[in-house]
Simulated scan of single mutants.
Amino acid sequence: MNYIETKNEEHGNKIKLFYEDYGEGQPVILIHGWPLSHKMWEYQVEKIVDAGFRCISYDRRGFGDSDKPWEGYDYDTLASDLNDVITALGLSDTIIVGFSMGGGEVARFIGKYGTANVSKAALISAVPPFMLKTDNNPDGLEKEVFEGFKKEIRKDRAGFLAGFGDKFYNYDKNKDRVSKDQKHYDWSIACRASSKATLDCVDSFGLTDFREDLKQFDVPTLIVHGDDDEIVPIDIAGKKSKDLVKDNTFEVIKGAPHGLIMTHKKEFKEILLRFLKK
């Protein structure tokens, strides 16, 4: 198994992050969503490698096969982890692709470290620019939404994750596009995550303001969102990111839910590969 050791010791000992690395060519890093792992990218990795790219997917700390420390789930630390992946693997001219919570890592990484080793970025069903409703972000979600997540996770994490999976895919509307077995597979991945990481990341993706980070983007950026996303609504996420990122390509997949990389694999594959090759 492949691991890199982080350099960030702010939250105690260094930790190991699991990653998979396939193909040759320009590197593409895939950053997974909450509460899954690199395994969520299964149907994209093959297409990216076959298109002539080097595809790297890693597990966020606390998830998948990476170490599961008690602390360190804030976005500054997660962006530092991404920087360590890029540095340890000696990457340059990198394309970084973040799904949902992973879009936050993309945003905070660029805001904090810049784009010296990055040539393109992609935000897929991503949480930026700011999920929380505040006086200067009136279209956001009430804090009670995220507190409700944490309450249900503490009460019955497995049960919460099963219900989240239904909403992730808008399952009743997309039964012809995604199987019960896939939902169960996702559930099993999510259940393997650290319960502490699962909880702490709710505050990270729910309460972190990425608006200033997005203003620092100076590379071509792909923004993809489904217009039927019930987890990260397009009106408070994708559409607002489009207005903040200077050089962006904004793609809306009609009828797509949050988990569009599974329900709308064909449409998403075409959009992503077109952007990677452009």
Rank of each mutant, 00 (worst) to 15 (best):
G111P: 03
Y171G: 12
S80E: 14
K143G: 03
V85I: 15
I95E: 09
I110R: 01
L78K: 04
G165S: 11
G159V: 10
T115I: 03
F109R: 01
G163H: 14
D67T: 04
F164T: 04
Y169I: 09
N117A: 08
A121S: 10
K133T: 04
F99I: 09
S66M: 08
R154H: 03
G114H: 05
F63M: 09
E147S: 13
F149C: 05
F99K: 06
V127Q: 11
K68L: 10
G114C: 08
G140W: 00
M101R: 11
I124Q: 00
M101P: 01
G103F: 12
K112M: 13
R154Y: 04
G114W: 00
D93S: 15
T77N: 03
S125F: 01
G111Q: 03
S66H: 11
D74H: 03
R157Y: 00
F164V: 09
G102P: 10
P138V: 14
P138D: 11
Y75M: 15
K120V: 10
K173N: 04
A121Y: 04
V127Y: 06
Y169F: 15
N137M: 09
G98S: 13
Y171K: 13
K133H: 07
D74L: 02
G102K: 09
A88C: 12
Y113L: 01
R177T: 03
I110A: 00
L123I: 08
N170K: 14
A158N: 08
T77R: 00
S80I: 07
K150V: 08
N174Q: 08
D139C: 04
G140R: 03
G114F: 07
V106Y: 04
E105I: 09
P128T: 14
E71M: 15
P128M: 11
A162Q: 14
R177V: 02
D65S: 08
A121H: 07
F160R: 01
E144D: 10
N83Q: 10
A162F: 13
G163F: 12
T94C: 15
F164H: 07
D76V: 09
G104C: 03
S80F: 07
V106H: 02
L161V: 05
G64F: 00
R177N: 05
G114K: 01
T134V: 07
I153V: 11
D176K: 03
Y73G: 15
P129F: 10
L161W: 04
G148S: 14
L141I: 12
G102C: 07
S100D: 15
I86S: 13
N117T: 11
G111M: 02
F160V: 00
R61T: 02
N117D: 14
A79T: 05
R108D: 02
K150T: 03
S119H: 02
V118K: 13
A121D: 06
E147T: 09
K112W: 00
F109N: 00
R177Y: 06
K120L: 06
K175S: 00
K167Y: 01
D166R: 13
R60C: 04
